[in-house]
Design a protein around this nucleic acid. Sequence first.
DNA 1: GTGAAAGCGCTAACAG
DNA 2: CTGTTAGCGCTTTCAC
Lengths: 343, 343
Amino acid sequence: MSRTTIADVAREAGVTKATVSHALSGNRPISEETRAKVLAAAEKLNWVPSQSARALATRRANAVAVVLARDPEVIANDSFFPAFIAGVESVLSETETALILQVVPDREAEERAYRALTHGRADGALLLDLRDDDWRVPFLDDLGLPTVLVGAYEQPTAFSCVRTDDAAPVREIIGHLRAAGHERIAHVSGPLDYVHSRARADAYIATMGDDALLREGDFTAASGRALTEELLALPQRPTAIVYSNDTMAIAGLSFARSQSLVIPDDLAISGFDDDHLSAHLSPALTSVSSDPAARGRAAARLLRADILGAHPRTEIVDCNVVHFRESTAAPSTASPTVSRRTP
Amino acid sequence: MSRTTIADVAREAGVTKATVSHALSGNRPISEETRAKVLAAAEKLNWVPSQSARALATRRANAVAVVLARDPEVIANDSFFPAFIAGVESVLSETETALILQVVPDREAEERAYRALTHGRADGALLLDLRDDDWRVPFLDDLGLPTVLVGAYEQPTAFSCVRTDDAAPVREIIGHLRAAGHERIAHVSGPLDYVHSRARADAYIATMGDDALLREGDFTAASGRALTEELLALPQRPTAIVYSNDTMAIAGLSFARSQSLVIPDDLAISGFDDDHLSAHLSPALTSVSSDPAARGRAAARLLRADILGAHPRTEIVDCNVVHFRESTAAPSTASPTVSRRTP
DNA sequence: GTGAAAGCGCTAACAG
DNA sequence: CTGTTAGCGCTTTCAC
């Protein structure tokens, strides 16, 4: 392992440890000459400062954390997460900051995880899957851990926040469906205590005027199927269903088909998240893409600023784009189109 | 932050720091009575040992790393990765071990990342996306970082390895296609320097007898489309194409359709990885599921053992299952079937 | 501009 | 069974 330490480098360069340290950090003026000597020695000995020693001395871990309290199966089927992480990483790597990922089974484990992280493992955290009145927000505030909320958290908070407008695409889809003559438009939401599910459902209710055709799912294929079955069994069945993710939409589409309904003639369908395969389904699925990587980048930048002591702020990353495809096309419509950016 | 230290707890409990340390670690016999006092004090002061101090003292980071040198877009569209990580985490969380994720743009950055990790950030690494003669293998060996290879690495190595049999499902699919009367069966592979692409392509060549209809793609939809176009333009076009992932298969399927070919009547198609939407396509896509979570768990367990000083060993996680669906069904075949485990 | 020395918070000999 | 004493490898005052 790391047998060579800063002392070896100092000896090799003929200076003291302090000089080596400063030559690398630039925290105090160093003559060009000695700096060169130090760098040469470091290079020669192939030395890299120990992160753990540095973390202890500076009280900074140079790492941020994402703790996920999700079922592994849900993680595996989520198209948002990997792209989000990729975005986060692209920013963190600029400053040699590591990303610590932790998946926990329950709340107790999650609290323990955050406590451990706070004490020397991470300098900040990214909070996903926000819920109304999320317990983690005051908890992390208490812990004093810099945190960025990803999602439209409504309660007052001192944390930075990356939001998107989830309502606009819902309004746009419903508008599109209505223009095509649809009146009985249903919505299959995600769990309504998630703020993003809630925002979409609220936009649906506001646009439709009531929640008679709203059904609460849980983002799994199973719930998409079950709720579609329920909706199609209504005396006045809906002619269109707006789903809160692609997985549920596909499951619903399959079920509707198994009942000999033709999509979109008998039933129009739209999803959310724009899974990379959705455009290739047949019929191609109308969905909302949301540039998770852009949101990851924004979140990472805000967190970095917060850790450095900046004032928390909210950034709106408006990247939701509705892709209208065959699953909502009127029978005559030929080629799929992409809408402009949602306003 | 962590203002309370082990000294505070020791004072509160009326013992020394060493006793506190051992009361928690169990590294030496402690009377039930003092242990209780210590735990009570720790609880009261809400103390959690500092990871960075512990890491420095024990020369162990209690973390393992995964470094990914991939394009963010590829990460976002990969169905293997999130499930694999979830599996890894399920094992790591048992021992409070953190997972450090790092995405790097190029080889230079990757080397730096591994160097930094070795020095106090991580105790081991998981290597994905293995290539023939992968430079990382000797490099990490040099660094002395315990490592587990995920994939069928063929060169001699002192590292532990989690392998699967990628050849068996390819043979099974080709056998199935031949039984259905197909003779001109093509293969669109991933980059052939990836060991898993290579293994699948080799199985294809061995089974077919030649590589006349083998085309090398890069796992992206664009390459799937382009190579399908190329294959379908042949004087004697193939009647079946075996793709090395679902993304390329779907892109190929879309293209074939745009040429008015009927799937599977005019062209049979199969994928790999069994994306969660693949079963819902129309026609449903024949694909190979490989339980990435199981492989993640196996890799994490091997790595933990290696870090503890166990002898490296190779574990075969045989979890590839071919799901025969409509895209390879003979026109008459009614319902999709699932094969037995590949032998 | 550089050196010397004192920690950061914990673990691990070594005593007793 | 418990206390004492050194460090782990770095950063950071404080002198010079």
